[in-house]
């Protein structure tokens, strides 16, 4: 729907399968993230391991489908499974700053280290493999560390392909969730003041008030917008006139991407991953001779 988030409906499906898609989105759709940090110099007050952890959590805009998983125990990495980034920055005093200034932004150069300072260092033949690639962090303005004059950070990072069940930093979504479509039924006509009270019980847009022959009559306009606040049940006069239910096979998914891949691609990938799981076991069945 909007940039980076997608809301879609999946109708006529069971929770078992809807939940499988959600779980795969969270934990099994791969992305690239910083996994190894080689610290050549770090005189900032951020300790090496904290810095490494912070760098790991930065989303990297690189299509994971272009890369392979790194083999277990492989410490080196090659152009097919690793992306290398460098972060080399030193803070210094600004000689032209006003004497009486106390603003660090004016007094110092490079005192804020942002994700935009990370630069891609191609490995092997990556410049030929990805001629028009632009590998960089999704966001330019993630604050990584603060420096004071004389302090510097000089690190090399290796990004590898991984999945969210190994570490949450690999998760391609900020959230992926589903809810059931609300179903609101008015058991009796609700009119005038009661209709207005009823309208206030729900989220804006759920209940509409129509004017029929000089009477205000409440009508359910868009049950989808309801949040199941159950506010109506606090009103003695209304609680027996309204039935709140859910459409049991109508799932409203909402997928919010971290920005590495568009959300619709993530959903397609998740479905393909579940198919891959089935295929893997079917192959197993065929390869084992049955007696």
């Amino acid at each position: 729907e909007e940039e980076g988030t997608l809301e879609f409906d999946m109708v006529g499906i069971d929770a078992a399968i809807a939940n499988a898609f959600r779980r795969i989105l969270l934990a099994e759709v791969p992305t690239m993230a910083v996994e190894k940090v080689f610290v050549y110099n770090n005189t900032s007050i951020v300790q090496d391991e904290i810095l490494a952890h912070r760098l790991g959590l930065i989303p990297i805009r690189a299509d994971p489908r272009l890369f392979e998983y790194r083999n277990q125990g492989d410490e080196e990495g090659t152009e097919i499974d690793t992306l290398q980034f460098q972060l080399k920055i030193k803070c210094s005093r600004n000689p032209r700053a006003a004497k009486e200034s106390s603003d660090p932004n004016e007094l110092y150069f490079n005192h804020k280290v942002y994700s935009k300072h990370m630069t891609w260092v191609p490995l092997g033949n990556q410049t030929d493999l990805f001629p028009d690639a632009d590998f960089r962090p999704v966001h330019d303005d993630i604050l990584v560390a603060l420096l004071r004059p004389g302090q510097e950070i000089d690190v090399l990072m290796h990004c590898v392909k991984g999945v969210g069940k190994d570490h949450a930093k690999f998760s391609p979504v900020a959230t992926a969730s589903y809810r059931l479509l609300p179903d609101i039924t008015l058991l009796q006509p609700i009119e005038d003041e009661a209709a207005e009270v009823l309208q206030k019980c729900f989220s804006p847009g759920v209940i509409e008030i129509q004017n029929i022959k000089g009477k205000k009559v409440a009508k359910v306009a868009n049950a989808r917008l309801d949040t199941f606040s159950r506010e109506v049940f606090r009103h003695e006069g209304l609680k027996n006139l309204v039935r709140l239910a859910r459409v049991r096979n109508h799932y409203i998914f909402s997928v919010e991407s971290t920005g590495i891949l568009p959300p619709d691609v993530l959903v397609s990938e998740a479905i393909k991953i579940l198919m891959g799981k089935c295929q893997r076991f079917l192959n197993e069945l065929d390869s084992v001779p049955m007696d």
Binding site: F8, I17, I271, K272, F281, L282
Partner: peptide, 19 residues
Amino acid sequence: LNDLMGVCQHVLNTFEKSM
């Protein structure tokens, strides 16, 4: 396993079509 594959294929086709 085959049925689940079929369901996934259907969901994938439907999703990509509506997208």
